[in-house]
Structure formats: C-alpha cells, structure tokens
Amino acid sequence: MSSSTDWPLWEVFVRSRRGLSHTHAGSLHAPDAEMALRNARDLYTRRSEGVSIWVIPSTAITASSPDEKDSFFEPAGDKPYRHPTFYEIPDGVKHL
C-alpha cells in the first residue's frame, strides 16, 4: 500500500440514528469532498451507525493550541458557581 498519497485529510462527523447532533467519528483521506463522503460511508457507517454524514477539510478547522491550555481553560477551574450544582434547589421544584 502506497503511503505517498497527496490527498487531503477530511474530518468526518456522523449523526447516529437516535442522535440529535453530528459527532466526530474520525478522519480519512480523499481526493475531493464527494469522494470523502463515500469513503466516510464505507469507513464509519457500514454497521448502520449513521443516518447523516458531514465531511470537513481538516485544514478548515481552527483548533486551540496546547500551549494556550492554561489561559484558555484553567480560569474556569475554581468557579464552581458557574455550575448549576452550586445552587440549592428549592423544595417546591419538581421534575428537575
């Protein structure tokens, strides 16, 4: 098998039968978007996992950098009042 393919990389998102949103399933190589969809169908839905597929060129994704991890995520760590569990639930509230 040749590893010298210069096909671009695509990220695959699959919506499962009962799911409401597309979730990331993996990535693959394909020459263009149409072929990426077909490859995704073969690679990620052959055991009837999905009812809808999105493919997105990996280069179109802007990701946060590991170097920015501290400034991005740590400030949220010590602010429990941002979680709904911080509040006490009044006795009268049902069905929560």
Binding site: H29, R38, D42
Partner: peptide
C-alpha cells in the same frame, strides 16, 4: 494491495 486504505475498504465492502 489497494492504492489507499480508504479504497481498500470500499472495494472490500
């Protein structure tokens, strides 16, 4: 023997 892994899966399918 397929040219790329993705195509190998497609042909096997």
């Amino acid at each position: 023997h397929a040219p790329v892994l993705e195509e190998e899966v497609a042909l096997a399918n």
